[in-house]
């Protein structure tokens, strides 16, 4: 398995073709390396079904990254750093081009005063 720091130069993200093109340097171990990369990318895509990339662009970004880190960690039984996760995503998406979720805009445009749930006051009111 690669160290997870794929060196291949990816063009501007949006292109889907050849994300699994093996790095030229690893010609000797090519089939194995390639299989590992394919496996890795498959998992990433699987994870994206749960954590849609659009959420990476807004308020929830870090918890989505966290979710992806944990997902990959479970799949491959090793640690994935946040940076590594983002690099993997970069093979498929140009994250900067993503627009913010409408749902989120709504969440943040709606102003509401803070209030404590009533359960906090039970003892006080007894």
């Amino acid at each position: 398995m690669s160290s997870g720091k794929p060196k291949e130069e990816e063009h501007d993200g949006m292109s889907v073709h050849s994300p699994c093109k093996p790095p030229p340097s690893s010609a000797s171990s090519l089939p194995k390396e390639q299989a590992a990369q394919v496996e890795l990318e498959l998992r990433v895509l699987e994870a994206l079904e749960i954590y849609p990339p659009i959420k990476l662009q807004g308020i929830h970004r870090h918890f989505v990254i966290y979710g992806l880190m944990e997902f990959l960690k479970r799949s491959f039984d090793r640690h994935f750093s946040a940076e590594e996760v983002l690099q993997l995503l970069d093979r498929f998406y140009n994250l900067e081009m993503l627009k913010t979720d409408d749902e989120e805009i709504d969440l943040l445009n709606h102003e509401e005063d803070f209030s404590l749930p009533s359960s906090y006051f039970i003892k006080e009111e007894s």
Partner: peptide
Amino acid sequence: GMGADSIGEILKGIRCYFDKSLPTMLLYK
């Protein structure tokens, strides 16, 4: 040590939530 990486991400998440939600959710009138 190492595990702190994911903590770091969570804390960034908390900070981000805090900054964005303070004016809309966390203030009393």
